[in-house]
Simulated scan of single mutants.
Amino acid sequence: MPYEPPTHRVERSIRATTGAKIVAGVDEVGRGAWAGPVTVCAAITGLRRPPADLTDSKLIPEPRRSALAEELGGWVTAYSLGHSSPEEIDDLGMTAALRLAAVRALDGLPTRPDAVILDGKHNYLGPPWKVRTVIKGDQTCVAVAAASVIAKVRRDALMAELAPQYAEFAFQENAGYPSPVHRAALEAQGPTPLHRLSWAYMDALTRWKHLKRTRIEPTEHEQIDLF
């Protein structure tokens, strides 16, 4: 394994310092895509030894990533997915859309977590959730890594299911992210109902840029007390 496996160090710290008994790891996928939802997974893993090869989903090649996601589905204590649609992303802006998807994921868990480990440096979740942000949490924290893999595989599968409706865009290959095929299809046919119309790529589409929506820019991140 070319990387250090994730651990329960952060979760143990949270449990020890706050008394939290249930800690969920949260990660997102689809933030930088041109099309499709942004997807958030919340996973509760406890302190058990994780399956082999678990790390940030981007570091795991296919087909191991899909096999690992299936394995994680039976290994985690619980997990839940939340999505924000392209329309919600355009209406709310990405920060608020991420928060919406994360709340949907957390609300879908059978038990409300006492605390959340959120991948990255920005707390887009906020109160009333007790959040610990961890840069590269998807590589270092077991629960966040599990959420990363499940979110990636499930969103990729969703985009593959939608691909036959928009064959020229090859969503089964690019999952809605930028690619030469994706860009060529946009230039020829314009955006689909799956596309985020407030994204900057619309500026380069001469025939279609009149469809661009005004993007809601996120405000400065609020100072949220972390523990």
Rank of each mutant, 00 (worst) to 15 (best):
T95I: 14
A96T: 13
R99I: 06
L100T: 05
A102S: 13
R104M: 10
L106D: 02
L106A: 03
D107C: 04
G108M: 06
L109R: 00
L109D: 02
T111A: 15
R112F: 05
D114H: 06
V116N: 01
L118P: 12
D119E: 08
K121D: 15
H122R: 15
Y124H: 11
Y124M: 09
Y124E: 01
P128M: 03
P128Y: 09
K130L: 14
V131Q: 02
T133V: 14
T133H: 09
T133Q: 10
T133D: 09
I135F: 05
K136F: 13
K136P: 09
G137V: 11
D138I: 02
D138E: 08
Q139A: 10
Q139I: 07
Q139F: 03
T140R: 15
C141V: 13
V144M: 03
A145D: 02
A146V: 07
A147H: 09
A147C: 06
S148Q: 03
V149N: 03
V149W: 05
I150G: 00
I150D: 00
A151H: 11
A151Q: 12
K152G: 07
R154C: 04
R155G: 08
R155L: 12
D156V: 11
L162Y: 10
A163Q: 04
P164V: 02
P164F: 07
Y166A: 03
A167V: 15
A167S: 14
F169L: 08
F169E: 02
F171H: 08
F171V: 06
E173Y: 12
N174C: 12
A175M: 14
G176E: 11
G176S: 06
Y177S: 01
P178H: 05
P178F: 11
S179Q: 08
H182I: 04
A184L: 11
A185V: 09
A185C: 04
L186I: 08
E187C: 07
E187I: 10
A188I: 10
Q189F: 15
G190L: 10
R196E: 04
L197T: 05
L197V: 00
L197M: 11
W199F: 12
A200C: 05
Y201P: 07
D203L: 14
T206L: 12
T206P: 00
R207Q: 12
